[in-house]
Design a binder for these strands. Structure first.
Lengths: 173, 173
DNA sequence: CACAAATTTCTAAGAAGATAGAAATAATAA
DNA sequence: TTATTATTTCTATCTTCTTAGAAATTTGTG
């Protein structure tokens, strides 16, 4: 696969962006390439296109698979596995939200609750500490609830919700 | 300042969590400590409490200040600057949203638009590439609009909006 | 103004992470 | 089964990030 200047630009930027959000640069670049590719790509072609080692592509694809962002496709007359990413940006958004909640928000909430329990049990903690923990727990719980509710929506409904914009904000009175 | 086991646990977790989201571990730890502290702390006390070099604390505080998450306070009879963080979790959330949008989403949107313009001008790009860019731009624009609208809310209103929960999701029909 | 305290910037050393290639494993076809 | 191709795992190297301390600067005091 031959990259045009626009494609290169996009892939590099996406890699950079993902990296800022705690995603390995190579992983984000592979993802970006698959988004641009109209057809599923075999690993060696990805390696060649992005000029990275075949083994890194393998690791990156495994990682993306763990996120549920790529799937494997088979092509007649070709023994190699071909990889493609989701077609719908909104589905992608929902998946990333779900995964980040599961991997980061949930464990944080668990840790905060453990802290709070421990703080209530012992007598060493100040009221200030307890209050702060309670605030954070409340915040994380609400955020988590939102993420869960979003999961129940279809990608199309998610888009519609974001498009509502003003109407939502008017609810706050 | 002496840390209780609960405080240590919280600070370490917060550092880890921030790090996963692309924030320097030391920066997040300083922030966590300031959240727990009932009073503003001078830099050298932070360094001693967290067992890190004075210079790192200086850098971290500067970074947090850049985010608008800490402010400086002066104490009578003490030449040193004292630092405190925001009291309200919701205000904190709004600030972080604003800053991440400004630093990451806006530049990404700009890059995507540049890619799209370039793609339309030249003849090298496929329709698939153009369509993908358009989808991403639409998504980022909507997300950005939401972030902007949230900025207009008070911290209390933000909390209320999140508490509405179901009502919001019912809007999608 | 000179001195002292506080703070920041700079840099070199150390730690952690990413990467390429080799080796091992698995899968397919003859 | 054996040979060949595809894929993954492992590890040593390289790069990048982090950090501590020194030096420089700024700020405040007598």
């Amino acid at each position: 696969m031959k990259l045009t200047p626009v494609m290169s630009k996009f892939i590099l930027h996406w890699g950079e962006m993902g990296w800022r959000w705690g995603i390995n640069r190579a992983v984000a670049q592979v993802h970006a390439l698959l988004m641009l590719s109209p057809k599923a790509l075999p690993a060696d072609e990805i390696a060649e296109t992005l000029d990275m080692a075949r083994s890194n592509v393998s690791t990156s694809l495994k990682e993306l698979n763990g996120w549920g962002l790529v799937r494997t496709v088979h092509v007649f007359g070709d023994r190699r596995e071909h990889f493609e990413t989701l077609r719908d940006v909104w589905e992608m958004f929902l998946i990333i939200t779900r995964e980040r909640k599961r991997r980061e928000l949930d464990p944080t909430l668990a840790a905060l609750r453990a802290c709070a329990t421990e703080a209530d049990a012992g007598k060493a903690e100040t009221d200030h500490t307890k209050a702060r923990l309670a605030q954070l727990i409340e915040f994380m719980e609400l955020a988590g609830n939102w993420a869960d509710k979003a999961q129940a929506l279809s990608p199309a409904a998610t888009k519609r919700l974001l498009q509502l914009g003003d109407k939502v904000f008017r609810l706050t009175g």
